[in-house]
Design a protein around this nucleic acid. Sequence first.
DNA 1: ACCTGAACACCGTTCAAGT
DNA 2: ACCTGAACACCGTTCAAGT
Lengths: 226, 226
Amino acid sequence: MTTQPTRTIVSRRARPAKDPLSRELIVATALELLQKEGSAGLSMRKIAKALDTGPSSLYVYVANMQELSSYVLDLGLAGIALPASDAGSWQTRLFDALSSYLLALYDAPGVAELALTTVSVGPHALAFTEYLLQCLHEGGVSSLSAAWGVDLLMLYATSVAFEQSSRDARGTTIQTHLAAMAALDPQQYPRIASSHADLISGSVDGMERFRWGLDVILQGIMKKEG
Amino acid sequence: MTTQPTRTIVSRRARPAKDPLSRELIVATALELLQKEGSAGLSMRKIAKALDTGPSSLYVYVANMQELSSYVLDLGLAGIALPASDAGSWQTRLFDALSSYLLALYDAPGVAELALTTVSVGPHALAFTEYLLQCLHEGGVSSLSAAWGVDLLMLYATSVAFEQSSRDARGTTIQTHLAAMAALDPQQYPRIASSHADLISGSVDGMERFRWGLDVILQGIMKKEG
DNA sequence: ACCTGAACACCGTTCAAGT
DNA sequence: ACCTGAACACCGTTCAAGT
């Protein structure tokens, strides 16, 4: 009648020694799914299945989907590389930090969408925000302008990443959009028509446009400060 | 055995002479639901129920949820008021048009979220884009810069509206966020701490911040053009 | 041509019950 | 304390069948 030692082993089935649940494990699994399947892969039920349990088990470690999303976003930002404080001018470091953020979002299609609709107060998001604020501070920007400016810079980088990732995910979203633009009556929408022509003819890549936007925002901030 | 004239009347139940389905009716009903219940109200099944039919009936007029969303977004932008071309300088008109856009998004909480993740090529979205491009054109901005600039301006206005509407919808999202910021260690995040202090102390309303962002973008564009 | 019922394959969240 | 089964109230989309 005593419990046999084999019993435990049998109950673990053919899995690689199932780890006990934890918030870290849940969040890491969620990010993996998000990277593999895009935003459609991020669901309580799919995470639970990947961890070989039921969805209700997750609620011990996570209050709801929104809270989980903010944790996943923060983990997705773990890959951001922040330049050392002596790695060039504050402008250069600001640009490099934002480029690294962009890369981190490119890496995981769904994360960009998450970043657009979720705020994280996790360690990686905070460190990134602190870094950008510090750069602007070094540039002599007041702390109120810096706060608003960092918001604007991050929003811009996030949306560039989202646009790119939604192009990849939904196939030819941008293609369809451009086709619709091309089909418009140039009499009715003359400015759209000519802008569209320029967008087509211009041989500009994504990075050039990204740099343009950051420049615009930065120059605008400095102008208002000076 | 002949069909009785009353039969038709009975089948219409206590409804006000049920309109035949059409894309316009579907989209209008969808927008109503979105305005009443927020983004949670926008679902095929809820729209169908509101129209007293089954969800499959909608697919005759609309390919899928994404297409429907883009139509709903465009209808949501119908309320934008574009200033007459003699209503002040191009900067003033640009600002007024964007303010009107902001108001239209405030009006319907869910529409802002839609605008953040959906592109519309409907008449209202096109007219708005054309108007903004025209303003920048009058300001002497090149058509490539104008195209990118309009994107940036609209993105900014949309995100301001989204931030506001998510505050309303999810109750105290921003409150929670600010509380988390206040609880941070000022040693570890000195710039976040001082920015946060300024954000609290400064008596700035939403409109002031909105204007600041538009100014930054516009000044930045002009600087790069000049 | 238009509409419907019924089904398929999903969701987030709760809660009583088990260990 | 942690985990689970089962249920509740939802999703988008398809498709054979009816009118």
